[in-house]
Design a protein around this nucleic acid. Sequence first.
DNA 1: ATGTATGCAAAACATTTGCACCTGG
DNA 2: CCAGGTGCAAATGTTTTGCATACAT
Lengths: 148, 148
Amino acid sequence: MPTSEGQELKRAGLKVTLPRMKILEILETAEPSHLTAEDIYRRLLESGEEIGLATVYRVLTQFEAADLVHRHHFEGGQAVFELDRGHHHDHIVCMECGHVEEFYDEMIEARQKAVAAEAGFDISDHSLILYGRCKRSDCPNRRDALAS
Amino acid sequence: MPTSEGQELKRAGLKVTLPRMKILEILETAEPSHLTAEDIYRRLLESGEEIGLATVYRVLTQFEAADLVHRHHFEGGQAVFELDRGHHHDHIVCMECGHVEEFYDEMIEARQKAVAAEAGFDISDHSLILYGRCKRSDCPNRRDALAS
DNA sequence: ATGTATGCAAAACATTTGCACCTGG
DNA sequence: CCAGGTGCAAATGTTTTGCATACAT
């Protein structure tokens, strides 16, 4: 019985290997869903896998090329990776606790297109990130400050 | 007679030194107005100044803290710096030639605020970058591809 | 003078790459 | 079996830092 991970990999034209399976599995079950390469590496080690950080980067780069994941450059140096679940969205990042919230706004998307057309650009991608503070005390995912 | 650069530095609470003056001057007269630290370093060397790259980074970081400049993280690894001329705007970046165009859209700004409020965030900053291709043949500022 | 800024070289990081070995189909 | 994938270590590219010297006030 082929796993769903295995099928996804084949569909993407990638050989089904253990590192790729494991990394995909981590991305699929990750909570929160935005992880750095090191986050993934650490989780692999924790679950006893002998996978190198270089492989994590290589696999993530392949996944990105295959549109399985997106790479975001939030503030703080490290890129974060997120599984493409088919629904485009933008991000709000809490600079106090690192919590990431997703949103999608039809009007913003439309205005972006209009603005690009006006400027004579063919847009292939965009990045919209709001930085701020979530006022909730139950803020999950507390990690080192992302703030500059 | 104090130069305008000198006054700006004093206003920002920074001691008036030659490296700071020169770097501020480069930022003020830069065309295009988005420069990497290396861009600035190269221009300093070209005009015969003996200023280290480390100093360029230190000064830019201080300028950023003093809100004299903004630091943007376009794709391609290097941060780019831009003088704060008092008018907030977002960016369209051509992935073929690196040309950067600025835009401001009231509706997008308004929607961002609304979205943030809905999510319970206090927004302190945001980053909106559109990536694409400018179709013009007279595309200025041709540099190494920024594309991934 | 005196505390801060600077230059240089070395460190710190995130990420990529070379290469010998291992593995999936 | 054999192309491609992986681990490790070393290289890369950007940005930061330690420290002795130089400078602004």
